[in-house]
Design a protein around this nucleic acid. Structure first.
Lengths: 238, 238
DNA sequence: GAGTGGTCTAGACCACCCA
DNA sequence: GGGTGGTCTAGACCACTCT
């Protein structure tokens, strides 16, 4: 158990802060104290504290110490890399997933472009409607490369594609790029979602990459305007 | 010049990648090589590489090396902490700022709540309309605490509040929390922006904190739907 | 086995903050 | 001046990848 001391420290404090056991404003032990407590050195402690700082849990002040922020607790929806399943577990409201489509199709032009493959190359298309509190407010359209994912079923899609890809297939999702914009609702949007007459939808385009930097999934998450929220924590680089 | 070797390395490579001098897929020198090149040690080089990785410039692969990504170049609008002035310089399209209001007012209930001050406490209210390619597409409403910012004029608002606060007043902006949602357009939105009949606007609420963790500014940036875009880079924590 | 990145150690010096 | 965080050094061992 000598490995990843810094991750242990990070996880322990992230937990303490997220559950509210450590109130905002609380001063953390100094780096030297923490080093002694965990039987390690300052550099290792600093790795943990920097992670906490980047993720909005604490703030470090020169000459003063590290302090708990009241921001890290509000972690939610679409920030970072998180699946709908993980999200719905966090927000704790009744959700349901309806799988509309799970099939291998010939990539249409726009999808081929996004995935950087030839038009009409085979791709998995998974279309899912997400219901929150009995309203169909999100339409998720996933496109996956058959080279990386040989099998895809409605059962898998009903659960979590992330879980399947990471746990069953053993692929490692590494990073993603997300683009958020607002676009006119399509006929498909109107058919599959409860749009309540709203003319536009929020479109979140997600490009997911594996550890070997290959792009393997493109996801288009279409949200009803009034049910969309995104929160971001930013730290000034200096 | 012994200070911040790792920032020098970071900046040099960020520049090389952003300008395209290093093409996507290029392998960087190994950490040991870089350490030798810069006359430093591996830990210091690793700080630089981790920064590059977090910001989407490179990807590190165990046992293989570090490789240039083609994502870091697309840096744009609202990600991170960046002012409209910095942004407009990046996108290189003709922009103009129209200052509608610069005055000290008594905080209305919602603003007081956001800034965590008593209702009717004095705050600076700055209202600016942003024109991009001769269309009024963004309405920025800024509220600043008089304790931190004693003076505010239309001239300052026409330039950059960030520059004024950081360079003239010497305050250090440290981090911010951003919330993005879509809301119905108000009468004020319709009056000040060219909404083209669109019924909703994208609202970006920005809570800006100083280095001593005091909240000193609340900004509401209201965007016309079709001109809004947000890009995010996310890395899976493991 | 050679090369790579991931983690860690045990020091060091500095700039900053506060009493 | 004592405590704090910021940076850096010169090593070490490990896990992984490639050939």
């Amino acid at each position: 158990m000598k490995k990843n001391i810094y991750l242990n420290i990070y996880n322990e404090y992230a937990e303490l802060i997220q559950t509210g056991s450590l109130e905002p404003g609380t001063k953390l032990p100094s780096e030297s104290e923490l080093a002694e407590q965990y039987g390690t050195t300052r550099e290792t402690v600093r790795k943990a504290l920097n992670l906490l700082s980047q993720n909005g849990y604490i703030h470090k002040m020169m000459g003063k110490g590290s302090f708990v922020l009241d921001i890290g607790r509000m972690n939610f929806p679409i920030t970072g890399l998180i699946s709908f399943k993980e999200m719905s577990e966090k927000i704790g409201r009744p959700t349901r997933t309806i799988v509309e489509q799970t099939a291998q199709i010939e990539a249409p032009k726009d999808i081929a472009y996004f995935l950087q493959i030839p038009t009409q190359a085979p791709v998995w298309e998974v279309i899912r409607v997400r219901e929150i509190e009995e309203e169909r407010v999100i339409l998720d359209k996933d496109y996956l490369l058959p080279e990386a994912v040989q099998t895809m079923t409605a059962e898998i899609a009903a659960e979590s594609i992330y879980d399947y890809v990471e746990q069953t297939l053993g692929l490692v999702i590494s990073y993603a790029k997300k683009e958020i914009s607002v676009e006119e609702a399509t006929e498909e949007d109107r058919r599959l979602m409860d749009l309540k007459g709203l003319s536009h939808v929020v479109v979140v385009r997600n490009f997911v990459y594996l550890e070997d930097t290959t792009l393997f999934q493109y996801t288009e998450s279409r949200h009803r305007l009034d049910k969309f929220q995104f929160v971001d924590f930013a730290r000034r680089i200096r």
